[in-house]
């Protein structure tokens, strides 16, 4: 029952939003955005940016984390972690806008900025997950004649999987939020509705955009949570 609280709440909120919207008489500006085609297109953009970011982060941050735990050089490890930590203290909006000024506006910039911004949780969780594998487990794997790759793939990664997945989940929530800001550099998404609603003083548009983004964030977090439970190796 507890597991289904989030989807129930999301459906209820969306229902209330729909009922409220249908009770309003919309002016021409509102009609231009509050229609199914426009909303679906913005949602598609938003999800596309979020999913592309998460996929790129997974592909880049997990191997980086693995490589960093393998390196013997403390300097390399400290440098990468230091940069990643400062990156985390950097506000998402700053990263996105700076990149737009230095490079260009649009989708590619938003994607790069989002990847930079969501990188750390996966990186640090990959490292933590691998480091917390019990030394006895690692030694007996080696002592039984597993090659270093076999130890990594059959023992360390499966044991670290829950921690890595938790990092990925955090990173997904980060990127849903940061994708909202992508509107500032013309990369689309539901942020468009929020910003338009605010500048044009059309609160129904603003509220619809904000509620949809919130619902997407909650749903993706929930899906990631369920996936985490299903993918966690039994026995851990």
């Amino acid at each position: 029952m507890k597991r289904f609280t989030t989807p129930i709440v999301v459906v209820l909120v969306l229902g209330v939003l729909l009922i409220w919207l249908s009770s309003l008489t919309l002016d021409s500006i509102e009609q231009r955005t509050l229609n199914v085609g426009y909303i679906v297109e913005r949602t598609r953009e938003h999800l596309g940016l979020t999913i592309a970011t998460s996929a790129l982060v997974a592909v880049l941050a997990i191997p980086t984390g693995i490589a960093l735990t393998r390196t013997r050089s403390r300097l390399v490890r400290a440098t990468v972690l230091g940069i990643a930590n400062i990156g985390q203290a950097t506000p998402a909006v700053g990263v996105i806008i700076l990149l737009a000024i230095l490079w260009q506006t649009g989708y590619s910039t938003a994607l790069v900025a989002l990847v930079i911004y969501s990188f750390l949780p996966v990186l640090s969780n990959t490292m933590t997950g691998l480091q917390q594998v019990d030394e006895g487990v690692r030694e007996s794997a080696k002592g039984m004649g597993m090659t270093p790759n076999q130890v990594l793939l059959r023992i360390e990664l499966p044991i670290a999987a829950p921690v890595i997945l938790a990092g990925l989940r955090t990173s997904i929530v980060f990127s849903v939020g940061a994708a909202t800001i992508a509107t500032f550099i013309n990369a689309g998404g539901l942020g468009d509705m929020i910003v338009n609603g605010l500048t044009l003083q059309r609160f129904p548009v603003l509220i619809t955009g904000a509620v949809l983004v919130a619902c997407i964030a909650l749903s993706l977090d929930w899906i990631a949570g369920v996936a985490e439970d299903l993918l966690r190796p039994r026995g851990i």
Binding site: D134, G136, E139, S140, A141, G143, M144, G235
Partner: peptide
């Protein structure tokens, strides 16, 4: 070499994500 030398340590080091049968079947 190690696949032909039995190895038992104090921390035991059973693999937590594998069943008992899977643990024994590793080598």
């Amino acid at each position: 070499l190690r696949r032909h030398i039995g190895y038992v340590i104090q921390q035991i080091g059973l693999f937590p994500h594998m069943t008992i049968a899977e643990n024994i079947a590793v080598v």
